[in-house]
């Protein structure tokens, strides 16, 4: 960011918005928006709160299981779609429909099927994350230069070596891009899932805080979740940059 021709570090912009938030909060225009300092103390309170720890634990495990499923399904499905025409034709339409569909709408159906608990949340996360991972993996596999495959075949590569030593690595830049987007969607999946169910994890806390007008705690929770999503996407971004050097020339 530049202001008056001077380079300003990123966190400075953040700082300005915090001050704006603080001022608006102090003016007490909206009781919905407490001053930012109050949100910070709320955050501090949360971090020492047993209920929060429990909610975080259950949300995080749901997220992990859901993402694990999304990865274990999404990457192989994407690879198969990229390599086998029949699979591509069979699955392609559905994957493309689901990637942009308003999936929150199917959560109630999931609740009926899987109950009002963690299983539903896990499947919500999976459902939110898996499609973009599949689509990006497929794109990466489709992008592989045919001569890399021919090279491997000409030197006698078996199926397993072809996939594990060549195709996976050649598609890795796209796979990581899909993973980053998938993780962000997965966070959304946890939140939306738990909000709709409203009796597990963070969803329960959100429900509790907003019903009791504990806005500082409510916002503290929101900010913490945003931070979590940001941090994991940055972690994947870090790995993406490590493979960037070959993304442009395969």
């Amino acid at each position: 960011m530049t202001i008056f021709g001077k380079k300003i570090p990123m966190f400075f912009a953040l700082f300005i918005w915090m001050i704006v938030w603080e001022i608006i909060g102090r003016m007490e225009l909206l009781f919905l928006i407490p001053p930012f300092t109050k949100v910070l103390t709320g955050m501090w309170e949360l971090l020492g709160n047993g209920k929060f720890h429990a909610a975080l634990g259950i949300s995080f495990t749901s997220f992990l299981y859901g993402m694990g499923l999304a990865i274990v399904i999404g990457i192989p499905l994407g690879v198969l779609m990229g390599r086998i025409k029949l699979v591509d034709e069979l699955a392609g339409m559905w994957v493309n429909v689901f990637v942009s569909a308003p999936l929150s709408a199917v959560i109630p159906a999931l609740m009926v099927l899987l109950g009002f608990g963690q299983t539903t949340v896990i499947f919500t996360v999976m459902l939110f994350a898996v499609w973009i991972i599949t689509i990006d993996t497929r794109a990466g596999v489709k992008n592989i230069s045919p001569s890399l495959i021919e090279m491997s075949n000409s030197y006698g590569a078996g199926k397993w070596d072809l996939y594990s030593k060549v195709i996976f690595w050649a598609a890795l830049p796209e796979i990581l891009a899909g993973l980053r987007l998938g993780l962000i969607r997965g966070v959304r999946g946890v939140v939306v899932g738990q909000l709709l169910i409203a009796i597990v994890g963070l969803g329960e806390l959100f429900e509790l805080y907003s019903r009791n007008f504990l806005m500082d705690l409510f916002w503290a929770l929101v900010v913490l979740i945003f931070m979590f999503a940001y941090v994991i996407s940055e972690i994947v971004n870090h790995f993406e940059q490590k493979v960037e050097f070959y993304a442009g020339q395969r």
């Binding site: 001569s147 890399l148 690595w169 050097f245």
Partner: peptide
């Protein structure tokens, strides 16, 4: 030996 070299970029 390939015209486009076919090297593993990674």
């Amino acid at each position: 030996v390939f015209q486009d070299f076919a090297l593993l970029p990674w």
